[in-house]
């Protein structure tokens, strides 16, 4: 190679003004596609999905004769939406003109905080939803007939207020399991949605930190 990279660069760009900038068409209407905007958008869709889900659950449960459960679950899901909205608002405060390392670090920090908040919530949310649904089922006609049928067919099983004890024990075990695995379930969910972006972000930050070592 005859020329240095510095001279290739200099000679290649003798006049910066000669470079042709692409035409800007309806820039403001263009969809933002960078990782942060994409995440905000995806989270936004998730939140809308939650609102629709809350409405569907409320209407469905009202239709099957469990409006109170519908209202409770609707309020719980709506609370998730409100928390999500607040988190996204924090993301908008990220300083894009910060240096690259700090920018990515602050984004990564936000992401970790977001995941931690929701993991903590889901630790109670999943078991609570399960217990509410099972309790409501236990008071329904079908639930009552199943429980009384079991109590009649297996009189040897100890009972608590007329309910075979295996029921509450089973519910408690499943509820604790849901609480225990809430983080793993949520991580799985997040990775399926954002896994690629997370990996890219980690890779970039590690690369920048490697320069500092």
């Amino acid at each position: 190679m005859s020329k240095s990279i510095e001279s290739i660069w200099k000679e290649g760009f003798v006049d910066d003004n000669a470079l042709i900038a692409p035409r800007i068409n309806q820039l403001y209407q263009q969809k933002s596609k960078n990782i942060v905007d994409k995440l905000i958008r995806t989270i936004g869709y998730n939140l809308i999905g939650l609102i629709i889900g809350a409405m569907v659950i409320f209407m469905g449960l009202t239709f099957v004769g469990a409006p109170i459960l519908g209202v409770i679950l609707g309020i719980m899901i709506f609370a998730l939406v409100v928390i999500g909205k607040r988190q996204v608002r924090q993301l908008e405060l990220l300083d894009k003109d910060d240096n690259s390392y700090h920018y990515l670090k602050s984004f990564d920090g936000w992401l970790k905080g977001f995941i931690a908040t929701y993991t903590a919530i889901y630790r109670y949310f999943y078991p609570a939803v399960f217990i509410l649904c099972v309790t409501r089922f236990g008071f329904s006609d079908i639930g009552r007939s199943i429980i009384s049928g079991l109590a009649k067919d297996y009189p040897a099983i100890p009972q608590l207020f007329g309910i075979p004890v295996v029921f509450p024990v089973g519910v408690i075990i499943v509820a604790f399991s849901l609480a225990y695995f809430a983080a793993a379930i949520y991580r799985l969910d997040m990775n399926s949605l954002y896994g690629r972006q997370f990996a890219k972000l980690d890779e970039l930050i590690k690369d920048m930190e490697a320069i500092q070592e």
Partner: peptide, 30 residues
Amino acid sequence: WRSNDRFNQQCEWSTWVYKISLNVCLTYLK
């Protein structure tokens, strides 16, 4: 354009353009 309001003149405008350009390119997924 979006972050123009945050330009506080602590650095040169061109340096600021570099920062934003690199931050966008580093985080842009296509």
